[in-house]
Design a protein around this nucleic acid. Structure first.
Lengths: 307, 307
DNA sequence: GGTCATATTTGTCCTAGACAACATATAAAT
DNA sequence: ATTTATATGTTGTCTAGGACAAATATGACC
């Protein structure tokens, strides 16, 4: 029953590896090894899909595909086991993971709500959501939860954060920041987390959804008078794509508008540090906003003093 | 400034037309007509991107690409003007469109909130959100609003509906329905609308995000004990893809689990009527849920009577 | 008007080659 | 010994033009 075969389009969609790459891997490394249907088209068994997904993940964390494809499935799985930091995982995250793996609808949302009220939004974000995101990603990676569980978790978090964000008192709205993701990037949770943090700092947030074309980002930033554009990057997209798109965006955007980029996708980006502000951490948002406000205040002070 | 050139990947991502199709159109119909960079690769001016987006839309509403590509941009735009039903557009929708086109952050969310409380969720969905979705899509289509405005609208609606859904009292949870979209489908608003309608009927809703692989939908439906799987299809994906995926899903899913499919993407689907319940309208949800409950009650009655 | 057979249209898949961008190894020079 | 230049891999994306089945349109006939 589980032995369905997938076409190359299916594999592209499900693994995130392009057709061209799939064909060139087959040609060069001898993997994957799809059989052919009566029409001579590639058909892949599901076990190869699993292996490809694993390879994609490992590759995104910096390994060379040419070496990965030579390894067996089990060897690949071993690679995924990071230096074990389970000691560092908060008890709450463990509990949430237990709920998640035990099936749907069993009170995940109410547990999250409880934690939110116990800790307050600020520490809920940094101490619960952020580590939990990581734990869920890791668990999927190791095959302990399915894509479905990940989606269910994401949807639940989205609900909780949306409700929380909506209940927050608006600050004075400075600085004004537009939040979105690059074309191709589908993960919106990081955006919501950033929106919450920024609203907590009193900043003005214009939350746009995911996948905004670059020209539209530019137009929006100008029309809405935002002085900062915030971009959230997961590591779902390759570093390559992220970097080239950020560079393009920087070129299109007026100099007066800053770019702030965060998320796991910008972790290893170093070379565009001077033109773009990179965030490895939600906590850095506080300092960054304060810095902007101070500069603005300083400028105003100078203006007054100079008059 | 706006005269940037796009690579074939950019065009694929931004227009939703695959590389292969772009190349084959060029070969067959002589459009698009990209120039080449020093490396011999296609580069497209932005005006061709706009035309391609338009063609994609018209094509999805049933026209032949081979005829569309021969037309000029202005002729294409004329085609988009549907039989004018602006008389049917409620005043509220007109007002919301005005707000949307007048820039960001100017009270769209508060207006929506007001309307929600005036009408109640039920009629807010059918009389405001549904027509507004259509109006926004149409306006984008005709070039009156940008993608950014559409995203901003979508994000705002998502917020309003999420908050509303979360505030709804849980019913008895029958029938239990899992909601998601097919792989490739990114629009989640229809899902939220359906979730609201179903919760209003007292049904149990397991809201999964977008783009769930078929095997995972099956696993989830079984594990969570859902008797119905609800799929929301926008017309962003081609009819082709939608139909083939739905057929695949029907084959994978146990017979006891029904498939309900709704959204503008299933409007013209007819041939799978007997195996899948198709919805053209939010209002049909009420009747469908009642029918399921009656059958269940009838079965129970028969069981009792038979004993 | 409806039903069937034939013709056209259309998207996706194929092969196999090329090349730039990046990473890494090796040699030369300070 | 450390930096700098050069060579060698490695990798993803792009190219061309051909093939074919599934979807759709056209026309003949009842």
């Amino acid at each position: 029953m589980t032995n369905c075969m997938f076409s190359i389009s299916d594999i592209e969609r499900e693994s995130g590896i392009s057709r061209d790459t799939l064909r060139v891997w087959e040609r060069r490394y001898g993997f994957p090894t799809p059989s052919r249907n009566e029409r001579g088209e590639r058909i892949y068994p599901d076990e190869q899909l699993l292996r490809l997904r694993l390879i994609k993940q490992l590759q995104d964390s910096g390994m060379q595909p040419g070496k990965l494809v030579k390894l067996e499935y089990q060897q690949l799985q071993q690679l995924t086991f990071q230096p074990d930091n389970s000691a560092l995982v908060p008890a709450d995250v463990k509990m949430l993971m237990d709920i998640l793996t035990s099936g749907f609808g069993s009170g995940l949302i109410s547990q999250l709500d409880t934690l939110l009220h116990q800790r307050g939004l600020r520490y809920f974000l940094t101490d619960v959501v952020a580590p939990m995101n990581h734990a869920v990603g890791q668990a999927w990676f190791e095959g302990r939860v399915g894509i479905l569980d990940e989606h269910y978790y994401a949807e639940t978090i989205r609900t909780v954060l949306t409700v929380a964000l909506n209940g927050l008192p608006p600050g004075d709205g400075n600085p004004k920041i537009m939040l979105t993701t690059l074309p191709g990037e589908q993960h919106g949770i990081g955006l919501l987390m950033a929106a919450c943090m920024l609203r907590l700092e009193g900043a003005g947030v214009v939350l746009i959804g995911v996948q905004t074309p670059l020209e539209e980002i530019v137009r929006g930033a100008i029309e809405s008078g935002c002085s900062i554009v915030g971009i959230s990057c997961s590591d779902y997209m390759g570093r390559r794509t992220i970097a080239s798109q950020l560079v393009k965006l920087r070129a299109l955007l007026p100099e007066g508008v800053a770019i702030w980029a965060g998320g796991s996708g910008v972790r290893t980006l170093t070379f565009l540090k001077d033109s773009i502000r990179l965030f490895n951490d939600l906590d850095q948002i506080h300092a960054a906003v304060q810095a902007v406000l101070n500069v603005a205040a300083g400028a105003k002070y100078e203006l007054i003093a100079g008059t």
